[in-house]
């Protein structure tokens, strides 16, 4: 292997007419890791995945997939990858089992034993016509087909749409197993808990551009933690400390946020106040995400 990157995208651009869908997007997935891909609807997640699948042609920038060009080497690369769309569409008059067999044969690695084991785990009846499947069952067809393949790289585009919590649990297990077998995964999702649980790295995009990427702990490091303390002393002195923000003091209780760099200094200042209880919570992925999209993002612009 000359590269340890399963996906290497830099400065990717794509226009649909006058709409700029991707505007210099960066995305890297190290081989054997699970990468989370976050962004609101219309931010360019599916477009990026379709470019990597060779279904769309990029207008600029670099995109490498398993060491190859996703457009020129599409067919050869597709033998090594599997894809689950956010809304799996099937042939209404074929059964789920037939669709799984056809997609597996197209990829060239259909393994009935593996298919059967995943059918069981996802509790899917393969003898029903796709016409009668619910949304969740159609997603299961895509998931069984993808997990049963021996693909080196999985593209999962909001794959748990319509699955019940039990099946989401099965999905989480399957991704973890795939990772243990050395498979690389790109997981686009809206479910923060899912991404926090599964992903080694996270890329957050907005309007076709990467706004944040790295491991979760790296991202957290850049953000403030929230600290809740119960003190004997007067908490109002905290407001004079550098690095303390959003202080809410109520008698002996205080809640504030603190920059990670200022944490040692703040803790040293807290000690003389005789803290009886102290809870420090790192920023959740949701907070990280909303920081780029919610009220905070609007305020900083």
């Amino acid at each position: 292997m000359t590269t340890t990157l399963a996906v290497d995208v830099a400065g990717l651009e794509k226009n649909f007419g006058s709409t700029r869908a991707l505007d210099g997007l960066d995305l890297r997935i190290e081989t054997g890791t699970v990468a989370g891909f976050l962004g609101p609807n219309g931010s360019g997640k599916t477009t990026t995945i379709r470019i990597l699948l060779g279904l769309l042609r990029s207008d600029g920038g670099r995109a490498m997939l398993l060491g190859g060009d996703p457009w020129k080497d599409a067919v050869a690369l597709h033998r090594r990858i599997a894809y689950v769309a956010g809304d799996v569409t099937l042939w209404p008059n074929l059964t789920g089992g037939e669709a799984i067999d056809i997609l597996g044969s197209l990829r060239g690695d259909l393994d009935r034993t593996r298919v059967d084991s995943f059918l069981q785990r996802f509790d899917l009846d393969p003898t029903k016509k796709a016409r009668s499947y619910s949304k969740g069952n159609r997603q299961k067809v895509g998931l069984v087909s993808a997990f049963a393949s021996r693909a080196e790289l999985l593209f999962l585009d909001e794959p748990t749409n319509g699955l019940d919590p039990l099946m989401e649990g099965v999905f989480t297990e399957c991704v973890a197993e795939a990772r243990a077998e050395g498979t690389s995964v790109l997981l686009s999702s809206h479910i923060f808990a899912e991404v926090e649980k599964l992903c080694d790295t996270v890329t957050i995009i907005r309007d076709g551009r990467t706004v944040e990427s790295g491991t979760l702990s790296e991202l957290r490091h850049l953000q403030r933690s929230t600290i809740t303390v119960t003190l004997d002393g007067d908490p109002s002195v905290l407001s004079t400390l550098d690095g303390v923000n959003d202080l809410v003091a109520d008698g002996g209780h205080a809640t504030f946020t603190v920059d990670s760099g200022a944490l040692p200094r703040v803790l040293a200042a807290l000690a003389p106040l005789n803290p009886r209880e102290l809870v420090s919570s790192p920023p959740s992925l949701e907070e990280l995400f909303l920081r780029h999209y919610g009220v905070h993002a609007a305020a900083t612009e």
């Binding site: 279904l55 597709h78 990858i81 769309a85 997609l103 990829r107």
Partner: peptide, 14 residues
């Protein structure tokens, strides 16, 4: 147009 080509075109067939 029904979206069924997507899964096939992202498989190993030109």
């Amino acid at each position: 147009s029904t979206g069924r080509a997507e899964a096939q075109w992202s498989s190993a067939i030109s």
